[in-house]
Design a protein around this nucleic acid. Structure first.
Lengths: 334, 334
DNA sequence: AGCCTTTCTGCCAGCGCTTACAACATCTTC
DNA sequence: GAAGATGTTGTAAGCGCTGGCAGAAAGGCT
């Protein structure tokens, strides 16, 4: 089933059918009707591969995320998708599960698909990959990694500042021994988030901190909490790298009979919807995921009216959101 | 950057480069080395569109789901993806958000991509779409909709049986007035799940039931619960169409000071990971999502050794999982 | 050395579509 | 009614890759 068959049925040339498909307004109305009819009768759907081969372009944007299971990534993805659709673009998604080989192959796949733009919402990004992407001439957006370059936009959240807000808040509640629950990708040598947390704590001499990490899942949060508590260190507050791990942590604490926030304060990060629905509702840090999604789409898909390129670097300052999972440390002694 | 440039650099023909790329073993080793070197130096990535155009096939399978935000769908997707990768296939995903226009356009898109196989894990599926898919000759798997046909496999969960188990269990606990929390896609005219629930209740004369529905999200579960309680009907147990909505329900109940399971029992469906992590942990019905994912992949991707087609219809009988969100109705009076 | 296999490599015809460019049809205008 | 402007459609040259076929190279024998 191809253009030619439709053309034959409508008694026109393939070029005309193509023109109808691409709604060029040059086609005479009577002809268009005939073609449309043929298309419908034949249930013809253009071969997208042929189309982008011939056209040289692809009206598809690629999105690569670390862990779609975490609603944080999903929320961003969703916004990108709906923006893209609104502008007539498709989006293909790839999930790396924090595995760098997976990242490499996903990026190659996207290049192979000749995507019109690529968003990398991943925590890990080798410099040579950035290099490769820059050379590919594809418009790219990175989240939280890399530096702005030609055809590369950067979005970053001031994670450090966010963690500082959390630490200051816990400190003000009287907490002195803090635990940090991270996820595996975060235990690498140069580890932004973990380091940010350590630094934020180090600013205040009276504080002590210890970290543990596991997979970026509910279960991982639970395991990391278990490991941290088993180490003998006795924190009065747990700073979790994100909300999902915090919910995992909550479960472990509950099973051990450790009351939150009575015996232990817990904080999340991201302000994912679930953080309001878990029990107790999480004190967390809001990252405006929809805003991020919009920025991604804006810098990838050139809008007709709008100015083509926004800032090559966008920095977002996250806000603390207070809920029920944190309280004064003193309560523990009571 | 294309085959020709690589060929020129390696001083061979494009056909030879193509052979190297597709690891045909006929290429002499010394030639292969030269070509590989050229490919790497040029950072060449084959154009996937050209490839599948020329080859006529696409080593890509499509997966369409109703709501990726619900981990139920995501778990299935994830299994399909990893199985597919293991067999050298890519997968492209589309999310319909329960919108039928979105379903239609996603299906057309998949056909346009000439996917090697298509999985539709969606609750809504118009008969004419099924017709269209059958004609497209693409191997298709439906979950919970449609009937087996040539080149169409069907997987269905005996939802009715699952709900019956829930109803019987609640009945045995002394509950007589039940609420059903559904989601919008489920309020259609012929509505399998809602109907199953009503029928399950109708089997037992002493039972009474009332339903409410909202979006398939945490928030939706909360709203539907609010609506149900506002109606004046006073159930002692809430049967939720899935775990996510149940967690939403839990929050509403908590905020109203209604104890679970003391004042109200709540059940979920699916046995998503979150159902263990919420508070209280949910009594639910397990649907083996990994198994479903494997079946999907098996019937879409012809394995070399294995027999090509499995059963055209697979029915899964789900199991009740007891946790902490359900208890005797009598307790309420205490 | 000469002939026959067995490898290996190059040539080229598509795959289905887009897009100049050319060709034809239809109007205008004087 | 002819020339020119305008509108509409057809022709054909690719887009980058694969795969069948045939020719070239290399190796094995007598």
């Amino acid at each position: 089933m191809n253009l030619e068959q439709v053309a034959r049925r409508a008694k026109v040339s393939t070029a005309t059918v193509s023109r109808v498909l691409n709604n060029a307004s040059v086609v005479k109305n009577s002809t268009r009707t005939r073609v449309v009819k043929a298309i419908e009768e034949l249930k013809y759907y253009p071969n997208l591969h042929a189309r982008s081969l011939a056209g040289g372009k692809s009206r598809t944007i690629g999105v690569i995320v670390s862990n779609l299971e975490n609603p944080f990534f999903f929320d961003i993805y969703k916004t990108i998708e709906s923006d893209a659709h609104a502008r007539g673009y498709e989006v293909v998604m790839a999930n790396t599960d924090y595995r760098s080989e997976q990242l490499v192959s996903s990026i190659r796949l996207m290049i192979g698909r000749r995507v019109a733009g690529l968003a990398c919402i991943v925590s890990e990004m080798a410099p040579e990959l950035i290099e490769e992407l820059e050379q590919s001439r594809i418009p790219v957006v990175f989240y939280d990694v890399g530096r702005p370059r030609p055809n590369i936009t950067n979005i970053r959240v001031n994670y450090r500042r966010g963690i500082e807000k959390v630490v200051d808040y816990l400190h003000s509640l009287g907490h002195r021994k803090l635990g940090f629950i991270g996820h595996h990708a975060i235990l690498g040598p140069i580890n932004e988030r973990m380091k940010a947390a350590m630094d934020a704590v180090a600013r205040i001499p009276s504080l002590e901190v210890r970290a543990a990490a596991d997979a970026d899942t509910l279960e991982g949060g639970r395991q990391a909490t278990r490991a941290l508590l088993a180490s003998g260190f006795a924190p009065t507050a747990l700073i979790c790298v994100n909300d999902i791990m915090a919910v995992g942590s909550l479960r472990e604490l509950r099973e051990r009979g450790i009351g939150v926030p009575r015996d232990m304060s817990v904080t999340g990060f991201d302000n994912v919807k679930l953080s309001e629905f878990c029990y107790p509702a999480l004190t967390t840090v809001d990252i405006p995921r929809e805003r991020i999604g919009h920025i991604v789409c804006d810098s990838l898909v050139p809008r007709p009216g709008k100015p083509p390129a926004a800032d090559p670097e966008v920095v977002i300052d996250p806000e603390l959101v207070l809920r029920d999972s944190t309280g004064p440390a003193a309560a523990r002694e009571a």
